[in-house]
């Protein structure tokens, strides 16, 4: 049942590199990450790849397989024809460190820019009471395994380095939505989503949703509802009136 597959793997470091050809054994039930591991063990011990759980739970082995962002551990070899050449490259949006490993520090920087969960003062641990139905929306977003493939595929930053400073990417815009929908979070996140984290850049093409290995409906359930909340705020006549009367310093830029 085993066969020899043709692989083209991107090798290189320090901004330079090229696709290298390999012929490698494939056995029944294997996934792309197994093949990369076989290359390490038999042909290229220094081939760099990130991985941890090998079960689609940690989001480490994000790569591009035939140009599509995928988890190496969840891409079964049986989805390819035996005579097909499989091309494996690193995520394109982040700088390459070596081979398939990219510098994803952009994501950690963005995570730190989003104000943390803030419960009301005076609620003690153990006193929280929430209904299942009220936590389910945020729970969907907390399934995120931070593979960063949504940020990788998002056209706002995929080939536009210049947008990176202003745009948190789907992963962290979804984090804002998650906190905004948390029953106990008291921070008003609507204006900052738009002004500080670039929600307005998103034009809901759903590329992020399509690549999400956890099947989170990022666009429909997080980004669009968040956009609606921002719009409600901006065009709500009562808010407008309040702003006029009390001269609140809330910006209306967008």
């Amino acid at each position: 049942m085993g066969y020899k597959a043709k692989f083209r793997v991107w090798r290189g470091e320090g901004g330079e590199g090229r696709l290298e050809d390999f012929t490698v054994e494939v056995n029944e039930g294997e996934v792309v990450l197994d093949i990369i591991h076989r290359l390490q063990a038999t042909q290229a011990p220094d081939l760099a790849v990130r991985w941890n759980c090998k079960a689609g739970k940690c989001g480490s082995c994000s790569m591009e397989i035939n140009g599509k962002p995928r988890l190496g551990c969840m891409t079964r070899m049986s989805t390819f024809a035996e005579d097909e050449t499989i091309t494996v490259t690193p995520m394109r949006t982040f700088p390459v460190i070596k081979d398939l490993v990219t510098d994803v520090s952009f994501n950690y920087q963005k995570a730190r820019e989003i104000p943390s969960f803030t419960p009301p003062a005076g609620v003690q641990p153990g006193e929280y009471r929430m209904q299942q139905i009220d936590v389910e929306r945020s729970q969907e977003f907390r399934k995120c395994i931070e593979c960063f493939m949504c940020n990788n595929v998002c056209h706002v930053i995929r080939d536009h380095e210049e947008n990176k400073p202003a745009f948190a990417g789907p992963r962290f815009l979804m984090r804002i939505a998650e906190l905004d929908m948390h029953p106990y979070d008291v921070v008003d996140r609507k204006d900052s989503a738009q002004e500080d984290h670039g929600l307005g850049y998103c034009n809901i093409t759903k590329c992020c949703t399509e690549v999400c290995p956890e099947h989170i409906k990022i666009t429909d359930n997080a980004l669009i509802p968040m956009k609606e909340r921002v719009v409600d705020r901006k065009y709500d006549p009562l808010v407008w009136l309040g702003d006029k009367i009390f001269k609140r310093s809330r910006s209306t830029k967008g």
Binding site: Y128, R129, M130, Q139, L179
Partner: peptide, 18 residues
């Protein structure tokens, strides 16, 4: 466990919200 909840964790709930 309760402390995690105060840091933002969202556990599944009982009918009475615990």
């Amino acid at each position: 466990v309760w402390e995690l909840e105060a840091w933002g964790a969202l556990f599944d709930r009982t009918k009475d919200g615990k």
